[in-house]
Computed example of a mutant assay.
Amino acid sequence: MIAIIDYEMGNLRSVENALSRLGAEWKLTSDPEEIRSASRVLLPGVGNDAEAMERLRERGLCEVIRNLRHPVLGICVGMQVMCRHSEEGDVDCLGIFDAHIRRFPEEEGLKVPHVGWNRINNLESKLLKDIGRGSYVYYVHSYYANLCPDTIATTRYGTTLFSAALKYENFYGTQFHPEKSGDIGEQILANFLKL
């Protein structure tokens, strides 16, 4: 069973639909015991990092997430709150990934938030198995994770090269939305289910 962490941050329906298309069994939950006993955990999210951290703290989930030993995938804000610190709300996050969340700089001709399809350049990772370099994935974000030792894929937006995906031990994160990234995203979620 896959636990989708419910902390009231964003549209979960797309994630649920993507998992259902893959034939996966999932449960939306904020119960620490259900999260600990799941075979895999998804931490999706849309919105504000500071608010997301507050909601995780209110539910007593910060230490639960940090101590998980089975595969965990953070998506968008879910990945960002797994990093060290975010400029969005100047908040300390879970500290799993050795990355800091920054706002895209003001650049002429560059729209923020970054919305739409962009290429990823991936390194060797089981999460990105069979995903070709330069594949397109879907983004909606104003903040990004800097490059760090945990970076397993990158994307460039304007002059900024940022972490498109991260990995540390059993923890994975994608800044893009695999659940909205068509066949490529479905392959990434299928890879996650096989970890």
Rank of each mutant, 00 (worst) to 15 (best):
H114V: 02
F192W: 09
L161M: 12
T174D: 11
G23L: 08
A164G: 14
Y7M: 09
G173T: 10
N118I: 00
E107C: 05
R84S: 13
W117G: 13
F104N: 03
K194V: 08
I2R: 02
K180C: 09
T159G: 09
K180M: 14
R59T: 02
C62Y: 03
L42T: 05
S20L: 09
C76M: 02
L166T: 13
G89V: 07
D150K: 08
S37G: 03
M53N: 02
E186A: 12
D49E: 11
A190H: 14
A99E: 02
N67T: 12
R55A: 06
A24K: 09
R119S: 11
E179H: 07
D150N: 15
G10D: 13
S181H: 11
Y143I: 00
H85T: 07
S86Y: 05
L73S: 07
A38H: 01
G132L: 14
P32H: 06
E34D: 15
G158C: 10
K180S: 14
C148N: 15
T159L: 12
C62D: 14
L43H: 07
Y7E: 10
H100G: 01
H141A: 04
V81I: 15
Q80P: 08
N48M: 02
E106S: 08
G116P: 04
E8W: 09
E16N: 05
R119P: 01
V140T: 06
Q187E: 15
E124A: 12
G132P: 00
T154A: 01
Y138R: 12
N17G: 06
A3I: 10
V15C: 14
R66I: 11
Y144G: 10
V81P: 02
F176L: 11
N146W: 05
V112A: 08
E87R: 06
D6L: 10
G182T: 09
S37Q: 14
K180D: 07
K27N: 12
G74H: 00
V15Q: 05
H114E: 03
E179C: 03
S125T: 12
M53Q: 05
T160H: 00
E33D: 15
F162W: 04
T151I: 05
G23T: 11
V112L: 02
H100E: 15
N48G: 03
E107D: 04
K27M: 07
G45F: 11
Q175K: 11
P105R: 14
I184Q: 01
E8H: 06
A50W: 00
K129M: 14
L42D: 08
V112G: 06
Y157S: 00
E124V: 08
S135F: 05
E186I: 06
L128I: 10
S14Q: 12
S181R: 12
E88M: 04
D6V: 07
E186H: 07
I184S: 06
G182V: 10
G10K: 02
Y7L: 06
V77F: 01
M53Y: 03
H177W: 04
G89K: 02
Y144E: 08
S37D: 13
H85G: 03
V15W: 08
V112S: 05
D90Y: 02
A153E: 05
M1H: 15
R84F: 00
F171K: 01
V81C: 01
M79S: 10
Y139V: 09
M1R: 13
